[in-house]
Write a protein that binds this DNA or RNA. Sequence first.
RNA 1: UGGGGGAUAGUUCAACGGCAGAACAGCGGACUCUGACUCCGUUAAUCUAGGUUCGAAUCCUAGUCCCCCAGCCA
Length: 560
Amino acid sequence: MRAADTATREPGHDFIRDIVQDDLASGRHKTVVTRFPPEPNGYLHIGHAKSICLNFGIAREFGGRCHLRFDDTNPTKEEQEYIDAIERDVRWLGFDWGKHLYHASDYFETLYGWAEHLIKAGKAYVDDQSQEEMRANRGTLIEPGRNSPFRDRSVKANLDLFRRMRAGEFPNGARVLRAKIDMGSGNINMRDPVLYRILHASHPRTGDKWCVYPSYDFAHGQSDAIEHITHSICTLEFEDHRPLYDWFIENLPVPSRPRQYEFARLNMTYTVLSKRVLTLLVRDGHVSGWDDPRMPTIAGLRRRGVPPAAIRDFVRRVGVAKANSTVDYGMFEFSVREALNRTARRRMAVLRPLKVVIENYPEGQVEELEAVNNPEDESAGTREIRFSRELWIERDDFMENPPKKFFRLSPQKEVRLRYAYFLTCREAIKNAAGEVVELRCTYDPATRGGNAPPDGRKVQATLHWVSAADAVDAEVRLYDQLFAKPDPDAANFAADLNPNSLEVLAGCKLEPALVAGNSSDPVQFERQGYFCPDRDSTPGRPVFNRTVGLRDTWAKVSAR
RNA sequence: UGGGGGAUAGUUCAACGGCAGAACAGCGGACUCUGACUCCGUUAAUCUAGGUUCGAAUCCUAGUCCCCCAGCCA
């Protein structure tokens, strides 16, 4: 596991870490053992990252270990692709399960034996009711259920039927194995929950060996016990499964007694973290795939250029508690910018180009000017950038009739070209439609390198630019929120999709250093944001993704 | 009308009977060859009503509001 990136900060504690600490201090446990238990039926998202950081983080902080365990009890929904993606994403986030990679399916034989154990103890029975009958007899939230007519079968009959279920004698849905607990319980999970169902389906790991599969409830706690998990940490919706979790631990000859603790799952504004919805977004083509840079999946964030350290930092800031909450997306962006600011090389790129011709700059002359790679990191060094008579600047950096607070270029106004010269706009040339298509400007040779001239003249703005003769054309993809509303409706998510979540810019002008070396590292386009090369790039056509924009005070001021 | 949880600045999280604090967001300023970064300042909260106590966010009582549970999903 990688060293804490937050070493200089408070260690950070929460009610779960408090419990772990107490259990260690009191001697209840010698070491802490946690687990991250994904079901391989989709890709991991930022909500899972919270659980991953919690479980692996606790193991690291308290000198214990954390298992990666696939909760693969439903072969009708699970696929090898997801298994591979999950392993890749957990590793990428910076965590390592060592040799502790497990699957609930590793325990199918043991689990099956424990089911027979329950039958022999008179605590489980085979139920022949149809799904509809079971539902009808389960009662409601306020009315108790009714016992199944098959509830009092003999142990012998139950054993025989259950073994024939396993042998494949019955079709899907014909019978289930149920625990005999209490159909009158106020907790619906205790109303004779299903332990095994018949599923004639091929499993990614066990193939066709089984046609009965344990339910989540019958597999999870027992898997924890087999692995000697000390603290089984899950989300709030499993809180009322805990009595059932404990019931199995108490009624089965399990090798250890894990305990379950629940915390509130992560929610973010403008974001849906529901595997069902994410799956539909992919399936119905609303996004290009699980790793579409607009997706809140780990794979999407990675392609977007978000560093794993930013995700860890975000999760740490959000904290762990039991109250349902929705985190402001801005808090995530803050963590992303903070991580990138320290590490990203600075480069210049013009996204929406406007031609500048410097009338007093000699035709054919080219100069090499020195530029800093990262002001936050001197060891990143410097690079040379070429300057010439014709340049590209950002369209947004020129206004013919600027408002009062506009510091950038306008007719007769002087600005600095970053690392180059002071530049004054002399004339804006328009096309027939009245659009500005070119700026005629002059420069001051006394300001070489961007330094203030001897007369002490100052300038209000510094613009980025790219030499036209040297610029590399590129495609740049700008992303906005996938959803237009801060609280999208998961039940009808398509209606809340942001139609402008992707903006593709062609003909962007890059400084050549951006395509030299073929690096996949994140970069800052100065004054604009953090970007990273996309895997769609080809040698002739680089493609960049905007990870996140820079904080933009001007945009806020100009909007008022 | 059942069972299980939860309510502290706009947001997220602390405070574990003893001065309600942080981060993000906001606002104002300083600095600046990125309207970035950084720095400084600042606005802003204990769900309600009672009670116990020298003292209550914290303990007790009664309410209010919010979330989860009726898959052979996890």
